[in-house]
Each structure stands twice: as C-alpha cells, then as structure tokens.
C-alpha cells in the first residue's frame, strides 16, 4: 500500500493528576474549574496519533489529520506540546471536550468535520482514535463516527497495525483476559480504536512544532462553534467512582512484599 490518509480523532482531557470534581452548572454538568485546569491530549488518542505518524513516515506521501472537538483556547495550549511530536494537519470544531457531552452528538460533529476535509480520499482512509477516552470512556464515539462515514470495518483495542505489501492490514486487538485477537482486513477504509499501541511518546521537536503551528493556527483561529444541539441526553446524577487514594511513598520494597500487601488490602 502506498499513501495513507489517516484521520485521528482526539481531544483533550484535564491533566489526570488534577482533582476532578463534577458539578452541575447553568449549562449542565462540568468539572469544577475545568477551564482553568491544565489539559493534556487524551492519552488513548495520543497513542493513535503517534502510531499514525509512524505509519505515515513509513509511507511517503501519506497525510495525517487530527480532528478535535474541543474548546479551542484550551486546545491551543495543548497543541504547544503535541504539535512538537509529529507532523499533522489540525481540524477543529470548537465545543466541549468533557465527558458529559452526548457521544452521539460528538460523533456527528466529528463525522461532519471529517467530511469537510479537503483532499481526503475516503478510499485511503484509516480512521484512528482511542478505543476509550480518559474523560469518560464510553467507548462508543469511534464506532459511531465510522458508521456515519460508512466505514464498517472496525477494530477496537488495537495495539498493533501492520501494513502488508498487498494493501491488506494485520490488526492485533485486545480481547478479554489479556489475550489478543489477530485479524486481517483487506484494505482501507477501516476504523481503528487504539489501546496503548507499541510506540513511546516521541520527544518534543520544536522544529516540527513550528511547522505544524504555522499550518494549524488558522484552523484554531477560524474554528466554528460546534452544534451539539441535537442531544436529548439528560444526566440526572453524576458521581466519580468511589475511590480512596492512599498514597504511601516507599523505597526498595521487594515485589513479593508489594504483592502480598495488595492482596491483604483487597481481602480486608
């Protein structure tokens, strides 16, 4: 297979170290101080993006787009780091990125944005995204975006994608119990919801970053507000999973001791 057209759907989430407290406000549910919290690229989408960039590099002439439904001012901040990691063209729909948005509406906006990409050849389309999101993890958006675009070959929990010379692709998907399922799809278009993939996060490269931002700033500046009005979703209650974080800093504890302690804790 020669050139690829890879579209990565990915948005931003609050930095996971922050305190995430859901609150109902005048415009519905949100996280406390969400706009002020530092954000990062959704980790699953990040894996998808780095895998896309690596594939594109191997196949000269390929193009990578990152399609994002996100508040554009926050997205711009995140782009200062993400833009340095791999070349891509940014497509932005300005709107909420939180876990409280209707996933059907999100999918509709993303599919609309993808349809609007000039020069995208759907015959070559590999639609990438995260199989989950760190904002909520409904695991539903990518499937619906694929359906809306008429792309019905879909794989979720992907950790590896190998392109063969004949244009077919071997996909390694996570299935239950830590096992993998290997399948082969005859070619594009197809949807891949990535798990962690196999690549490390690339180091920042400001040269790539500068090139990306020159191209991508107009997309950010001109991003139109996304229309999510079709949603009938109403959240009657929201709660973060009950958890107790008990952090203890220890050094040089043997693995066996750690395992024993965890088992004791679980049993207690």
């Amino acid at each position: 297979m020669s050139e690829l057209h890879i579209v990565v759907c990915g948005s931003i989430v609050p930095d996971p170290l922050q305190t995430l407290a859901p609150m109902e406000g005048p415009t519905g549910w949100a996280l406390k101080n969400e706009m002020m919290l530092p954000a990062v690229l959704d980790p699953w989408a990040g894996h998808a993006l780095y895998e896309a960039a690596a594939l594109a590099k191997k196949h000269p002439g390929s193009r990578v787009w990152l399609v994002s439904l996100a508040p554009k001012a926050k997205l711009q901040q995140v782009m200062m780091a993400v833009s340095q990691k791999a070349p891509f063209e940014l497509v932005v729909a300005d709107g909420p990125a939180s876990g409280f948005t209707d996933s059907f509406e999100t999918a509709r906006v993303l599919a609309g944005a993808i349809k609007g990409i000039a020069g995208l050849d759907t015959g070559k389309l590999l639609l990438f995204g995260g199989w989950q999101s760190a904002s909520r993890g409904s695991g539903a958006v990518m499937q619906m975006v694929g359906e809306m675009l008429g792309v019905t070959e879909q794989f979720q929990g992907v950790d590896k994608l190998t392109l063969r010379d004949d244009g077919s692709m071997e996909v390694k998907e996570r299935v239950e119990g830590g096992a993998y399922q290997i399948s082969v799809v005859s070619g594009a278009p197809a949807v891949f919801g990535w798990a962690t993939g196999e690549l490390p996060e690339p180091p920042n490269n400001p040269q790539i970053g500068m090139q990306n931002m020159q191209k991508n700033m107009p997309a950010l500046m001109q991003a139109k507000p996304a229309d999510l009005s079709g949603s009938g979703l109403k959240l009657s209650a929201v709660a973060v999973p009950q958890q107790r974080r008990e952090t203890r800093v220890v050094k040089d504890v043997p693995v066996d001791d750690m395992a024993r302690e965890i088992v004791e804790w679980l049993k207690a």
Binding site: M80, A81, S83, N204, P206, G209, M210, M217
Partner: peptide, 9 residues
C-alpha cells in the same frame, strides 16, 4: 508559539 513550545519541551 516558539516560546510556548520551548516551555513545553
């Protein structure tokens, strides 16, 4: 942006 990126790096 050049500076914001340097900050991130």
């Amino acid at each position: 942006f050049d500076l914001q990126m340097s900050v991130q790096s």
